[in-house]
Each structure stands twice: as structure tokens, then as C-alpha cells.
């Protein structure tokens, strides 16, 4: 049964993907399906698609995925790691037998021997992350919020469908909110309101381009704040006075 609570990160699908109810869609999932690392003899991470009906990743039945308005997918992430406590125990044993501390080389050899011995016997940790896709709107909800999960998921998505995901945040959501042209044009200029110690006198800082104009009276280059990669000053809060003057200048 699908979850009743949780946190999610929303994305917009940016590009074309196969019809989610077509064979091409399930074939794409199968191409990046989860692959087991149960018997692996090295520290590994495996990430891939599964469904709630088959968490092994061996099959992708539409009936396990289709929830009418949305499609329910799952990402399985298995991690196999040598427990640090075993390394400490074996090292202590070895140092007691030798009657001295192990050298760096000996510690490395000990760890490699331990990996060969223990990793095939250790089961990986398993993580299942729900994904809800609304094909009609191209909205996707990922039920996990860690940065590493988001990064890995976006890579998996691209490998699967050869299209990108755009994370939903104040700017990207505003762009898709059906606002009129003036509002959208202002979106890239809008600066934070600086609610001062006396909020009755507070006001939004002037549009960033105008603040730039105030600081440098030279002719305004309207392309300056687009892609220069270092426009952080443009986004700083601005005091009421400076903003008001700049706005008045306009």
C-alpha cells in the first residue's frame, strides 16, 4: 500500500520521455533495473528501479505501477560496507599477537584480507525510496530529501530516460505558475524585502538591475546579471534607503 505520510522533493520532468503506459517505458526501467550485490566481495553500492510488487527488479508489471493519476515507482539502493568495528577487533588481535603496533602497510593488508573474508558473508543494507510520477503534468515526487539521494536519483533518471529533472523551488515553481509576462520578467530582477527594525518603513529592495545602476552610474548592461556565475552580491538584502533611492531613479 502506498505511504500515508512522509517528506518529498518535487521535480519537473524536463524533456520527452516514453508514454508511461507503453512498453518503451517499462523497457527503459528494466534497462536500469536494480542489480543485486548480495554476493559481492567488495564494498559496493547498487541503485536501480524496482516496483512495489517486485522489489528484486526482475519485472515491471504495469499493474504494480499504475495508480491512475500517478505512477508509483521505487528506487532500491543497496550498500555493502565492511563494519568498522570488525576492522578494529581484528587489528587489536593482530597487534596483541605481534606484540607491537601494525605498520600502515600491515593495516592495509589486514583490511583487504578482512574484506575478502567477510564481505561475501555480509548482507547489504537495503533502502527503498518511493517515487510518484504524474505523467500529465510531468510532476515527480521523490520521497527522500537527502542531497546524496537527490543527486543519485537524478543521475538514474537521466540514464533511464535521457531527459533531465528540474527541482521544484521558489524560482522554478514561479516559472510554471501561469503568471503573466510582466510578472515573469520581474521574477529575475526581484530582490528580498529588507524588513528593517522599523517594519513600517520597510520596503522591498529595488530590482537588482537598478541597484547595480545605483552603485555604478555607468551605462547599464542588462545582460550582466544573467550568467556571470558571480552575482551573489545582487541577491543580498538591501537597506530600505538604498532601495528607495534606486527605485526613485527608475
Amino acid at each position: 500500500m502506498f505511504r500515508r505520510s512522509g517528506s518529498f522533493v518535487a521535480f519537473f520532468v524536463d524533456g520527452r520521455m516514453p508514454d508511461p503506459r507503453s512498453a518503451a517505458f517499462t523497457e527503459a526501467l528494466a534497462g536500469q533495473r536494480f542489480r543485486s550485490i548480495e554476493s559481492a566481495a567488495s564494498e559496493e553500492v547498487s541503485i536501480g528501479w524496482v516496483t512495489s510488487g517486485d522489489p528484486t527488479g526482475d519485472s515491471f508489471e504495469l499493474e504494480d505501477i499504475d495508480l491512475d493519476r500517478g505512477l508509483w515507482l521505487q528506487v532500491r539502493t543497496d550498500k555493502k560496507k565492511l563494519p568498522a568495528v570488525w576492522v578494529r577487533i581484528r587489528r587489536a588481535q593482530a597487534e596483541r599477537s605481534a606484540g607491537r603496533k601494525l605498520s600502515a602497510r600491515e593495516r592495509k593488508e589486514l583490511k583487504e584480507a578482512l574484506m575478502d573474508e567477510l564481505l561475501p558473508r555480509i548482507l547489504p543494507s537495503v533502502g527503498l525510496t518511493d517515487v510518484l510520477l504524474e505523467p500529465k503534468s510531468g510532476l515527480l515526487l521523490l520521497f527522500g530529501t537527502s542531497t546524496s539521494l537527490k543527486d543519485e536519483f537524478q543521475k538514474l533518471w537521466f540514464r533511464t530516460f535521457a531527459c533531465n529533472l528540474v527541482e521544484c523551488e521558489p524560482h522554478s515553481l514561479a516559472q510554471r505558475s501561469g503568471l503573466d509576462r510582466d510578472a515573469l520578467a520581474y521574477l529575475d530582477e526581484v530582490a528580498p524585502v529588507r524588513w528593517s527594525d522599523d517594519p513600517a518603513q520597510a520596503a522591498p529592495a529595488a530590482p537588482r538591475k537598478l541597484v547595480v545602476a545605483e552603485q555604478a552610474p555607468a551605462p547599464i548592461d542588462h545582460d550582466d546579471d544573467s550568467d556571470d556565475g558571480d552575482n551573489s552580491d545582487d541577491h543580498d538584502d538591501n537597506e530600505f534607503g538604498a532601495g528607495a533611492e534606486a527605485e526613485a531613479m527608475a
Binding site: 521558489p170 522554478s172 529575475d188 526581484v190 528580498p192 552575482n231
Partner: peptide, 14 residues
């Protein structure tokens, strides 16, 4: 700075 990072203030104002 990306648009995502630069417009966080807009969500807080919201």
C-alpha cells in the same frame, strides 16, 4: 549562484 539558491528568499517571504 543558481536561480534555485538565489530565490530562496521568495519562499521565505511567501
Amino acid at each position: 549562484m543558481s536561480d534555485a539558491a538565489s530565490h530562496g528568499f521568495l519562499g521565505e517571504e511567501f
